[in-house]
């Protein structure tokens, strides 16, 4: 498997919505590469005809009925208590100019 380039670091940071300093970029470049080198041993494992495990519960079809749980709904002062950037009970951010990707 491939190792990672410094341009990849910048691309990943963008995808992850992180802004990295130049020193973080180069530090992470080295550290992440050494971890990737370590995890590359997985290549040697034969996994043909092996199903992936995404969870270990063995459970299936766990649902709730379509009932309104009014008790768990938060009061509007609770909803907005985590920030002071509130206007008429809306959360406020700088105007979003780019469209959703």
């Amino acid at each position: 498997m491939a190792s990672i380039k410094i341009s990849d670091i910048r691309h990943i940071a963008k995808l992850a919505n992180l802004s990295l300093s130049k020193s973080q970029e180069s530090r992470f470049f080295t550290q992440i590469n050494s971890v990737i080198e370590h995890i590359n041993v997985l290549c040697e494992v034969d996994t043909s005809n092996v199903e992936p495990t995404s969870q270990t519960t063995g459970l299936e079809n766990i649902y709730r009925e379509d009932n309104v749980d009014a008790i768990s709904m938060l009061k509007s002062n609770q909803v907005t208590s985590g920030t002071d950037k509130i206007y008429n009970n809306f959360f406020v951010v700088d105007m979003i100019l780019s469209e959703k990707i």
Partner: peptide, 29 residues
């Protein structure tokens, strides 16, 4: 940040099968 970066990388387009899917399969073993 390091873990977010690493995780974003192994899930990103072109690497998912090599890392994440592979790891889930070895997890089965």
């Amino acid at each position: 940040k390091r873990r977010i970066m690493l995780g974003t990388y192994v899930l990103s387009s072109g690497y998912y099968d090599a890392y994440y899917l592979k790891a889930m399969k070895v997890r089965t073993l």
